[in-house]
């Protein structure tokens, strides 16, 4: 960087700087010292993170945060949620405002390499689609030539939209908002013909509309959207903890451990894999700088991956999303966790 540029930068940084100075230390120690985890989540997306009628945060992204809290403190409730818009999320993590970002964020090369961030895994394998009114008579995204499309700013969605229409030689006008609720409101008001987002979000949005059955999600999936938790680069211990919290949930599902039987299996199982995960055999938790019951705490308090999925997005939720790509690898899906050894 040239010296002139350095001087120029310095004039604008006071805000960022003060926050940055505070997070230079090890994240795990900071989290333990303050006694709770700060987790960045979506400001209202059913199934991923939204407050329920009692003001309690629910959703798969929220449960990932709870799992990390359970691993660190042995208590899944020791987490505070910071609702963030798409535009704010990465800066909030970079500046240390949140310890983990678990906010349906797509894993991309730029975010991994140029932004000083690390994705710890994939909570949900998603893809981008389009939501349109049924009476529009559109059956394929390729029929959308000349349409106005509502999209949220600062997302990979915005870029995929550009790529898709450009590569198919179609014209479109993007109507861009900062919050997903605003895109939905504009779509409902008729400002756009189509709403584009990750397909899971489209299903979540659809149940918020006045007449959900009058809207359809088009069959095209125009992108890969692996959504996962993100941490700052440069703190490998913390990176490991967040990464393995998710792996523990997937491994637990694979081993048939759920929140109901975790206690019994911990006490009586003779399977070495189960005993290792539950912390009865080996010092796996210590290697992560956690207690040995870290995974047991996650599964007994939050549940395994399958439970979390069905509760928030699948059969036990209003969204009724099929597990599809998010089935375990052994059942034809992509969810796969390295072994606890």
């Amino acid at each position: 960087m040239k010296f002139k540029a350095k001087i120029f930068l310095s004039t604008a940084v006071a805000l960022v700087v003060l926050a940055q100075a505070a997070v230079a230390g090890q994240t795990l120690d900071t989290v333990k010292d303050k006694g709770y985890l700060t987790c960045g989540v979506h400001n209202g997306l059913p199934g991923f993170s939204s407050p329920d009628d009692k003001g309690r945060w629910t959703g798969i992204d929220v449960d990932v945060c709870r799992a990390v809290a359970a691993a660190v403190f042995g208590d899944a409730s020791k987490v505070r949620f910071t609702p963030l818009s798409a535009k704010e999320r990465l800066t909030a993590l970079q500046s240390g405002e949140v310890d983990v970002l678990s906010r349906n964020t797509t894993w991309t090369l730029t975010r991994d390499a140029a932004l000083g961030l690390n994705f710890t895994g994939v909570t949900y394998y998603d893809g981008q689609g389009f939501l349109v009114r049924r009476d529009l008579g559109v059956t394929s995204a390729l029929d959308l030539a000349g349409a106005s499309v509502c999209v949220q700013t600062g997302t990979t969605t915005e870029l995929n939209l550009g790529d898709y229409f450009r590569s198919n030689g179609l014209e479109y006008s993007p109507v861009v908002f900062e919050k997903s609720d605003e895109t939905l409101a504009a779509y409902e008001a008729g400002r756009c013909d189509a709403l584009t987002s990750d397909r899971s979000q489209l299903y979540a949005h659809r149940i918020k509309l006045r007449a959900p059955t009058e809207h359809v999600v088009l069959p095209e999936v125009i992108s890969k959207e692996p959504l996962g938790p993100v941490v700052r680069q440069g703190d490998d211990a913390w990176f490991n903890i967040v990464k393995w919290s998710l792996f523990a949930m997937v491994n637990a599902e694979e081993l048939g451990i759920d929140s109901g039987n975790a206690g019994r299996l911990k006490a009586s199982s003779r399977s070495p894999a189960v005993r290792r995960l539950m912390g009865v055999e080996g010092d796996k938790g210590k290697a992560l700088r956690l207690g040995n019951s870290w995974a047991y705490d996650i599964v007994s308090q939050v549940g395994n991956y399958g439970e979390v999925f069905e509760r928030n997005l699948g059969a036990d939720s209003p969204l009724q999303i099929d597990r599809g790509l998010n089935k375990l690898w052994s059942k034809g899906g992509l969810q796969y966790a390295p072994p606890v050894r």
């Binding site: 350095k6 001087i7 930068l9 310095s10 960022v16 700087v17 000083g116 680069q233």
Partner: peptide
């Protein structure tokens, strides 16, 4: 402030 920012940006790999 200048030094702190540049150091932090570099350390974070941003």
């Amino acid at each position: 402030i200048l030094d702190n920012t540049l150091t932090n940006l570099e350390r974070r790999g941003i």
